[in-house]
Amino acid sequence: MNSTLLPTDIVGGTFWLLSMALIGASIFFLLERNRVDGRWHTTMTLLGVTMLISAIFYYYVQGMWVDTGKAPIVLRYLDWILTVSMQVVMFYVILTAVTKVSSALFWRLLIGALVMVIGGFLGAAGYMSATLGFIIGVVGWLYILGEIYMGEASRCNIESGNEATHMAFNGLRLILTIGWAIYPLGYFINNLGGGVDANSLNIIYNLTDFLNKIIFGFVVYRAAMNDTQARLDEIKKLEHHHHHH
């Protein structure tokens, strides 16, 4: 197998693109952490780390693709078990920055994420029937959606009354609904629907990760910056008020 990336190799190209973009995003979020209000520091750290884990994963799989001509879909569960969990927990972290949230929510979200990924993995890797794995994975995903559309997370978001948090929460929720739909879809096609060319699936997953990880990160970053600005304006207003009295 040719050990350099050929210009005609779209799969390898998308792996390479993602690993570079994710390293860039990781450095960006970690450095920008100091520009946002202290309440958002944990969120930004979590973002940077999520991007870094994925970047390392992509770099590794890209090397494997170049060396062997294969990039088994099942490897992605290594990335997902960490990054999906962290991204779901992000909802909790964003809310704790601005409002009171029960720690039970953290565990419910985390367990939902683990059920989603582990169910899919067991089915895809052949440890249980592909159908059962699919059902468990989808149940985990729907449970998370339930929490963030109708559960405590959704309530806390509304009650926080924080404009920036609403923006982040709603943006992330949209990505979890639309962007993450690719995972059960890809699983279904690959394991239940007669399969698809693994190359096509890799390209689709790689490009979807652009939305699900990098755009996801920028939605949070934007919100953190907006909230920081709003607090600064608030302080200025108070000072101004103070001077006049």
Rank of each mutant, 00 (worst) to 15 (best):
V115N: 08
I178D: 01
I175R: 04
G137S: 15
K70Q: 14
G12F: 00
L132A: 11
A113I: 06
G194P: 04
G120Y: 04
M20V: 15
L18G: 07
L110R: 02
T177S: 10
G48A: 11
Y221D: 03
Y187T: 05
K70A: 13
A25M: 07
S154W: 08
Y149N: 15
L207H: 05
D197V: 01
I235H: 07
T14F: 15
F121W: 15
N170M: 12
G13N: 03
I111A: 11
L142P: 03
I135T: 06
S3E: 13
S26V: 04
A224Q: 04
F121S: 04
R76Y: 12
T131K: 12
G171E: 05
T45Y: 09
Y92I: 05
T14V: 15
A71I: 02
M51L: 05
A223H: 01
L176R: 04
V138P: 02
H243V: 06
F57V: 01
M64N: 14
G69F: 07
V139D: 03
E152P: 02
G217D: 08
M1S: 11
N34H: 15
D209A: 10
A55G: 12
V138G: 01
R35G: 12
F91C: 00
F218Y: 13
M90F: 09
I158W: 15
E159H: 10
A71P: 01
Y183M: 07
S154G: 00
V115F: 10
W180G: 01
D233T: 13
A104C: 05
G151I: 03
A130W: 02
F28S: 12
F134M: 10
E163K: 15
M64T: 13
L95A: 02
I10M: 11
I23M: 09
P72L: 06
L22M: 13
T228D: 03
E234P: 04
M1I: 09
L172R: 02
M225C: 07
V139G: 04
A104W: 13
I178M: 06
L75F: 15
G186R: 00
D233C: 07
I94D: 04
A125D: 15
N191C: 14
F106N: 09
V219R: 01
A124M: 06
I56M: 13
L110N: 05
I204P: 00
W107H: 11
R222G: 12
Y77A: 01
G194H: 10
N170A: 08
D9G: 07
G24V: 14
N2R: 11
A104V: 11
L232S: 09
F216A: 08
I56E: 00
T42R: 09
W16K: 09
I215K: 04
V74K: 13
T4Q: 13
L75M: 14
L122T: 12
R39Q: 10
V66S: 04
I158C: 10
L201Y: 06
I27W: 07
I203H: 05
L30D: 04
D197P: 03
Q62H: 14
I189W: 07
M1N: 11
T45S: 09
L31M: 12
Y143L: 09
W40G: 01
N212Y: 11
